[in-house]
């Protein structure tokens, strides 16, 4: 698998990260090496093996539909970089 700078651009954009040209070159080379190493997995025969997302067979872990008091709004907003009248403030996002 060849990692190109174009691919690194694409995944950086999806991740909302910006890599200056020099960093991008270095990252491309590093990712190339890491991904090449990951290709070791090609040697493992996984035909017919069900992908395992949960290691233990837990299922149906639910809670009853009972309300609990919500957290104090001020506490929830205490860490907000910008807020107004109880709402979080961000640059214009509404079309």
């Amino acid at each position: 698998m060849k990692i190109t700078e174009a691919l690194v651009d694409y995944i950086s954009q999806l991740s909302r990260l910006r890599l200056p040209p020099e960093e991008k070159r270095a990252m491309t080379t590093e990712l190339e090496g890491i991904v090449a190493y990951m290709d070791v997995l090609d040697g493992l025969d996984t035909a017919g093996v069900e992908p395992m997302s949960h290691v233990f067979p837990l299922k149906n872990v639910t809670r009853p539909d009972q309300t609990a008091p919500s957290q104090d709004g001020e506490e929830l907003l205490a860490n907000a970089p910008a807020s107004k009248e109880g709402a979080f403030l961000v640059p214009k996002a509404v079309e």
Partner: peptide, 9 residues
């Protein structure tokens, strides 16, 4: 997906 299969193995 391959890694999740490897995890099962």
């Amino acid at each position: 997906k391959k890694a999740l299969q490897a995890k099962a193995v």
